[in-house]
């Protein structure tokens, strides 16, 4: 499918017209925000009759709170953030890919196997993740456990904004981190550390970011929500197409998008549309890891938060397999 085909307005019956057309969505500058950035820049929102302002936010907590109080209509969110019973019930009808996450180790942990370093260490190593309720926290915990390290006793895990991680690793303020693209590649390129494992190696089906809205917003704007999901599905298909690789990298490198050097961007290390269906079974992996971490996830949360039916409705209206 060419861009022209994708960006053509879909024929919508009158009763499916969006309840609202002017929307504001928050995003964090990461490669997996690509479907949102592409939808805005390549006209997929416009093709659905939506006028979307993409707002670059400084923290996940900002997106969650702004969506909760209605200052944003929705946004790029961490799936576990929705499952961790936020102040307002939030739902997702679209996953934004499975991320391209990596664990990077600094000098202290690169000299010997991690178990040996810890056994001989006076102070436990410090690892950084992007948010407490994030796939990064759980990937790191699984990786540590697999390497014979107790994530609760043997190491300290803190939250550090990803843009600060490479520098803190280089200066030894932290000893390792788990984050999404482009930050692991950036740290390795700066010589701050080495890639020890990728998220795909640790848990290939682990869900990562989603397009989240409040349950109330979804109830009040069903047609807008469908239009939004359709636009982002089409943007994800565009982003996955190898023919669009150079254009996608250029879009992401823009200072208002992800804003890192194009040479560090490898968007095709992850798939956007292929993992767009938010499967409740994927949420089960997260819920199990959240419980193991003592993050008190309600087992019933997945059925409320994950709405594969919303994805299927949008995909069916686009003539895609569901």
């Amino acid at each position: 499918m060419s861009v022209a085909d994708l960006a053509r307005p879909t024929d919508q019956p009158v009763h499916h017209r969006p309840e609202r057309t002017r929307l504001a969505l928050g995003f964090i500058p990461l490669v997996d925000a690509a479907p949102l950035i592409v939808a805005e820049r390549c006209g997929f929102f416009t093709a659905e009759g939506l006028d979307v302002a993409l707002v670059r936010e400084a923290s996940w907590a900002n997106i969650r709170d702004k969506v909760a109080v209605g200052a944003l209509d929705g946004g790029h969110m961490l799936a576990p953030m929705l499952l961790a019973t936020p102040r307002r019930v939030m739902v997702t009808g679209l996953a934004l890919g499975r991320g391209d996450n990596g664990i990077v180790l600094g000098e202290r942990l690169s000299k010997a196997p991690i178990g040996d370093v810890i056994a001989g260490a006076v102070t436990p190593p410090t690892f950084a993740v992007v948010f407490p309720y994030s796939v990064h926290t759980y990937l790191l915990r699984v990786w540590l456990t697999t390497n014979g390290v107790d994530p609760d006793q043997d190491v300290r895990i803190i939250v550090v904004p990803p843009p600060q991680m490479p520098q803190m690793l280089a200066t030894g303020r932290i000893d390792g981190f788990c984050a999404g693209a482009p930050w692991p590649a950036l740290a390795v390129a700066r010589g701050a550390g080495r890639l020890a494992a990728t998220g795909a190696q640790i848990a290939p089906t682990a869900p990562d970011k989603v397009l989240g809205v409040t349950a109330d917003w979804a109830d009040q704007h069903p047609a807008t929500h469908q239009a939004l999901i359709r636009a982002v599905i089409r943007a994800g298909i565009w982003a996955d197409d190898p023919a669009n690789r150079a254009d996608l990298i250029e879009l992401l490198a823009d200072p208002d998008a992800v804003g890192v050097d194009a040479s560090l961007l490898q968007p095709h290390a992850q798939a956007f549309h292929r993992h767009a269906l938010p499967l409740t079974a994927d949420a089960d992996w997260l819920l199990a890891e959240m419980r193991a971490a003592g993050h008190l996830a309600d087992a019933g949360a997945a059925a409320i938060v994950y709405r594969p039916d919303l994805y299927r409705q949008a995909a069916a209206s686009l003539g895609l397999p569901v």
């Binding site: 400084a58 923290s59 996940w60 907590a61 900002n62 992007v130 948010f131 407490p132 309720y133 803190i158 939250v159 550090v160 904004p161 843009p163 600060q164």
Partner: peptide, 10 residues
């Protein structure tokens, strides 16, 4: 506007 806000969540 501070990215450090996520640290407080943890």
């Amino acid at each position: 506007a501070s990215p450090d806000r996520d640290t407080l969540e943890q």
